[in-house]
Design a protein around this nucleic acid. Sequence first.
DNA 1: GCGAATATTTGATCTACATCAGCGAGTCAA
DNA 2: TTGACTCGCTGATGTAGATCAAATATTCGC
Lengths: 253, 253
Amino acid sequence: MAISNSNNRFSSKLTSQCQNCSLSALCLPIALADEDVNRLDQIIERKRPLKKGEILFHQGEEFDSVFAVRTGTLKTYNITNSGEEQITGFYCPSELVGLSGIDENHYPVSAKALETTTVCEIPFAHLEQLSSQIPSLKHQLFRLMSRKICDDQQMMVLLGKKNADEKVASFLLNLSHRFKKRGYSATAFRLSMSRGEIGNYLGLAVETVSRVMTRFQKNGLIDVDGKEISIINLPEMEKLVGSAGECATIEHV
Amino acid sequence: MAISNSNNRFSSKLTSQCQNCSLSALCLPIALADEDVNRLDQIIERKRPLKKGEILFHQGEEFDSVFAVRTGTLKTYNITNSGEEQITGFYCPSELVGLSGIDENHYPVSAKALETTTVCEIPFAHLEQLSSQIPSLKHQLFRLMSRKICDDQQMMVLLGKKNADEKVASFLLNLSHRFKKRGYSATAFRLSMSRGEIGNYLGLAVETVSRVMTRFQKNGLIDVDGKEISIINLPEMEKLVGSAGECATIEHV
DNA sequence: GCGAATATTTGATCTACATCAGCGAGTCAA
DNA sequence: TTGACTCGCTGATGTAGATCAAATATTCGC
C-alpha cells in the first residue's frame, strides 16, 4: 500500500496542487501544458477529508461540481423506489465522480465515502468555461465521459450475461487493473467495500459473494484474509473472465 | 407511425438539413442559434439508408464519427469472448450512436440496423472543433454524454435488481417514453427488435420474454400482436416498474 | 479493553428463470 | 406452391443462485 507521495496525502488546501499531485498523469490534467495545469488548478477546491460513511452529494441535489478522488474510495448509489440501495460504481483515486449530473443539473445518484477520502471539487461551470479555452482539456473531458460510457456498458454485459464466478472474478481483476495503473500492486490489495456492497454492485447476494471467494481461495486462485485480497493465479483468473475486464476490446489493447 | 415530415424521410443528401429536420429539437441542434445550426449542418454527412441487418460500424474499427439516427432503429452490441452477442443499446431517431468510441479512438461495439435506417454522420474531429466555437453545442454534447451515462446506470440497476416482469415492463415503458418524446403514440407502437434481441438486452431468455408478454396480455396490461404493442393499462405498468424507467429521478422530472 | 452491533461465513432449502423440446405461423426463394 | 428458415409460443424439467437460519468473526462506541 505504499504510495510515492505518501507524505502529502492529507496535505492542506494550500499546498496541494495538480502540479505536484502524483495522480495528475491519470486525472484531468493529463496532456495539459504546465500553464494550463495552473489554470485548471485555480478553479479546483480541495476539500476537507470525508470520514467513512460521509456523503459527498445526495441523489436529487443540484449539480454544480464534479469531484476527483484524491485518496480513499467512494461509492455512488441509487435508492430505488422500493427503498433498496443499488450501487452503481466505486471510485478510486484520480477517478471523476458526478458526471452523470450534467444532463439534468441534478445528481441522479448519491456519493458516499467508503473510508476516509479526500476529493478535489471542480465546479463544472468553471471547468466547462476553461475547456473552451483549452482544447486538450475539452478533449480529455470528452474522453473521460466516453470511457465512463464504455465502462458502464461493460458492466451491463457483466450483469446481463455473466455467472457468479465470472462476476466476482471480473470485479477483482477490474480493481487489480485500476490499482496497477495507479502504481499499487496488481496482485495484493485491500477491498474498501464490504461483501454486501460487492454483492449489491454485482447483482449477487452477500452469501454468494462469500461462497465464490471462499471457493476461489480453495482452488488457489486468490488468498483472502478479510478485506485483504491476494491474487495468486492471475492467468487462471483472467481465463475465468475471458476478456480484459475493462472497457478495452481485444483488438486494440 | 405517421411522422410530420414523412415526405422527406428518405430525401436526398442535398435537401435534408438540420434546419428542416423534425428531430432538431431533440438532437444536437437543440438550443443552437440559427447560424450555428447552419455551421453544424455543414459538417454533417447524410448517408444512404442502411438496409435491415447492415452494419454501420464494427467493434474494433477506428472511431471517426458519431451518428444521429434519422429514421429507423439501430442496435449496438458486443461480441463477448465466448462468441455470444450482447446487445448494449437500441437507438431511436434523434439519438446519438458511437460516443463510446471517443476514449480509445476505436468503437468498442458494433452498430447494426434493425430495419431500414438513415443516419447523419458527424465527423467527431469537426464536431469537437466546432464545439470550441459554439459553447452551447459543447454544452449539449456534455449533456448528451451525461445522459447516456445516466441511462446506462439505470440499465445497470435494471439488470442487477429487477425480475423478469419488471425488466420487460421497464423496457416497454422506456420505449413508450422515447416514442412519446418524438411525437408518436406512447401507447401503441411497433417493436423493431425481435423477442430474442429484447431478451438478450434484458438478460433474459427468449422464452421468458415471450411468457412475460403473454402474461401481461392475459392480465390486461398490454395488447400484443406480433411486433405491434399497445399499452392498455399504463398506470399499472408504471406501478410494476416503480420508477420512471428513464434516467430521471423522482425529484426533478 | 468490553460488550453490542455489524459483517462474514457456512449449511439447508426454495424458486425464478434457464434450458430443452416440440409446434404453429410467417417469410422467402425458386 | 412448396420446402427451408426463422420466429414466437408453450409445456416439462433442471439448476444457479436467492433466501432462510444460525454460528463465528470483526468493528466500534465507550
